[in-house]
Design a protein around this nucleic acid. Structure first.
Length: 584
RNA sequence: GGGGUCGUGGUGUAGCCUGGCCAAACACGUCAGCCUGUCACGUUGAAGACCGCGGGUUCAAAUCCCGUCGACCCCGCCA
């Protein structure tokens, strides 16, 4: 071994020991007669001391620069009286160096490892190996490791087994765009990288494995966002002979366990639940941030027909803000403009000096006015925003406003607020292609008492699907699956897939369903998003070792890159547009 | 496909709105000297950017305009 201890290990108890340490030079402080070097590895910092009366070592240490990799031999000793550094776990000791070996040198750095100021992200990604040396990334990746360990331990204890599923698999045009991989052995045919291991895990249930999990890489060729990368990780789970409640209980316990083990935080279970309809009505979206307490209220019964409005109006909704001190005419105009852009009408009631004022005041009857005022706990600087128009537009506008104002008015407390959203619609109408799409995926079971509705009005059918939401982010989703081939085929038909397409795309799966499929269901959790929230980051890139840019490139390796004609030839591929980027 | 923000020594920023005082300022880093107890060491000095790139307007452009490239945020998209 090149070392006897790591750089975070030594304590008072080790005083007097001769030790070997190895690590990076975090910082050198040269006092003329004495040189201090902070040696760093992922466990910590240890101060090395080199005295000028040891001429040879002193000369050597003089040549040492930031981020050189050193091996040193020395004696652990106590720091002089009053000179301990209480900020460091190793701060009571130092190592008096008797031998220094420079294992490797470092060029001057493109940015400092110590995070004195934000570094441009593209630079960080280009030199990711330097960025990963920083405390922030080390903390994030170590926490991620802990979380993965915790998940594995928990699920293993609950009798789940981890099974790997293939990356080279079959393209299914439903859902996200696939990443394709050409097959050399089958010219003209392509594998697709999995968008999720969905069918494999269901087939594992058919195969009788009963409880499966995997920390699975998934691939989706869609545009990127702060919380979306083209490849990402899911904690993928599937169980046989279960109902929704079993999945909820499992995940709640797992989360509770996980947050306690990794962060020392006690979560309260069960998590609040609400139906999709309730979420849309009260929060204007299907992933409500419950850290913001205000909700969207239905004012239709109060205001319907009470005010003359020109346009078609099928919904009146309110958003009540306990206190908005600097709400001004200017702000009101700005909000109205935003509302107009969103295609809805907006007004407000502002409360000050024990009285409500509003542009609407003269337009509604005294009685109606009083009813509204009584509905809310108005106090100084309270504000009720009232929006009306097309129901969906109103709800989505107020939903967005709720989030924006939550941030602007500092209504968001620093805490973890989970909830379950359930009873999603089974289908949504695809305007472009004039047909039904699965809202979750086509393998999701409808609520059993609504099977008749499938033939009458598919839009009314709810699915046995659920999402888990944390602080306004969808961190997971799942469903109870269809386990009967006749129902599965019926769903495919409703999705306007021909018999031929069904056979060609999902034939193997339909067939598998015909050989004794247990009722089953599961969930997939977005590991990167969970890590982002646990680490307090605002992008999942900070939770991945080597993320991609918004254009899907890796600034360190330069992927994706063109390939040679020879490589294409072997695959039987010819580029349609020869103008692509040139080979270097 | 669309909307927006940003791009100034190695790093982070100031300057840009209101063109000339900018052959560009500050902090960190780098290099060299001094200093035996620092830990964001101190101190003295030095080097280092023609302002992402291309074009235009102007007597004059880091600053205004157009285009382009890159990073980021958002809409669409993400079963």
């Amino acid at each position: 071994m090149l070392r006897t201890h790591n750089c975070g290990a030594l304590r008072k108890e080790d005083i007097g020991k001769e030790v070997l340490l190895a690590g990076w030079v975090n910082r050198r402080r040269d006092h003329g007669g004495v040189i201090f070097i902070d040696l760093r590895d992922r466990w910590g910092l240890t101060q090395l001391v080199i005295d000028s009366n040891q001429q040879e070592i002193y000369q050597h240490a003089n040549a040492v620069k930031s981020e050189f990799v050193l091996q040193v031999k020395g004696i652990v000793r106590a720091r002089p009286e009053g000179l301990a550094n209480l900020k460091l776990p190793t701060g009571e000791i130092e190592v008096a160096v008797s031998e220094v070996i420079i294992l490797s040198e470092s060029k001057p750095l493109p940015f400092e490892i110590e995070e004195k100021n934000e570094t441009d992200e593209s630079l960080r990604l280009h030199y990711r190996y330097l960025d990963l040396r920083r405390t922030r990334m080390q903390k994030n990746l170590m926490l991620r490791h802990q979380v993965c360990q915790s998940v594995r331990r928990f699920l293993s204890e609950r009798q789940f087994i981890e099974v790997e599923t293939p990356f080279l698999t079959k393209s299914t045009p439903e859902g996200a765009r696939d990443f394709l991989v050409p097959s050399r052995l089958n010219e003209g045919s392509f594998y697709a990288l999995p968008q999720s291991p969905q069918l494999f895990k269901q087939i594992l249930m058919i195969a009788g494995y009963d409880r499966y999990f995997q920390i699975a890489k998934c691939f989706r060729d869609e545009d990127l966002r702060a919380d979306r990368q083209p490849e990402f990780s899911q904690v993928d789970i599937e169980m046989s002979f279960v109902e929704r409640e079993d999945i909820f209980e499992l995940i709640e316990t797992m989360m509770k366990n996980l947050f306690y083990e990794a962060l020392g935080i006690q979560l309260e279970t069960p998590f609040p639940r609400m139906s999709y309809d309730e979420a849309m009505n009260c929060y204007g979206c299907d992933k409500p941030d419950l850290r913001i307490t205000c909700t969207i209220d239905d004012l239709s019964s109060l205001l319907e027909g009470k005010i003359e409005v020109g346009s078609k109006t099928d919904s009146w909704n309110g958003l009540f803000l306990q206190k908005w001190k600097d709400f001004s005419r200017k702000k009101a105009d700005l909000l109205s403009q935003m509302a107009k852009n969103a295609g809805v009408s907006l007004s407000y009631i502002k409360f000050a000096k024990e009285e409500g004022t509003s542009p609407l005041k003269n337009k509604i009857a005294e009685q109606t006015w009083r009813k509204i005022i009584e509905k809310y706990p108005f106090q100084e600087d309270s504000l009720l925003l009232i929006a009306w128009g097309d129901r969906q537009k109103v709800l989505s506008f107020l939903g967005n406003l709720r989030i924006n104002l939550g941030e602007e008015l500092n209504l968001i407390q620093n805490q973890f607020k989970f909830c379950w959203i359930h009873d999603f619609p089974l289908f949504e109408w695809n305007l472009e292609e004039n047909r039904w799409d699965s809202m979750h995926h086509p393998f999701t079971a409808p609520l059993l008492d609504q099977l008749d509705q499938l033939n009458i009005d598919p839009s009314k059918v709810k699915a046995q699907a659920y999402d888990i939401v944390l602080n306004g982010f969808e961190i997971g989703g799942g469903s109870i699956r269809i386990h009967r081939s006749d129902l599965q085929e019926k769903i495919f038909q409703l999705l306007n897939l021909s018999e031929g397409e069904i056979q060609q795309k999902f034939g193997y799966f339909i067939e598998a369903l015909q050989y004794g499929c247990p009722p089953h269901g599961g969930i997939a959790l977005g590991l990167d998003r969970i890590m982002m929230l646990m680490s307090g980051e605002i992008s999942i890139r900070e939770t991945m070792a080597f993320p991609k840019t918004q254009k899907g490139t890796c600034l360190m390796s330069g992927a994706p890159s063109p390939v040679s004609d020879d490589q294409l030839m072997v695959l039987g591929i010819q580029l349609r547009n020869k103008k692509g980027p040139k080979l270097i």
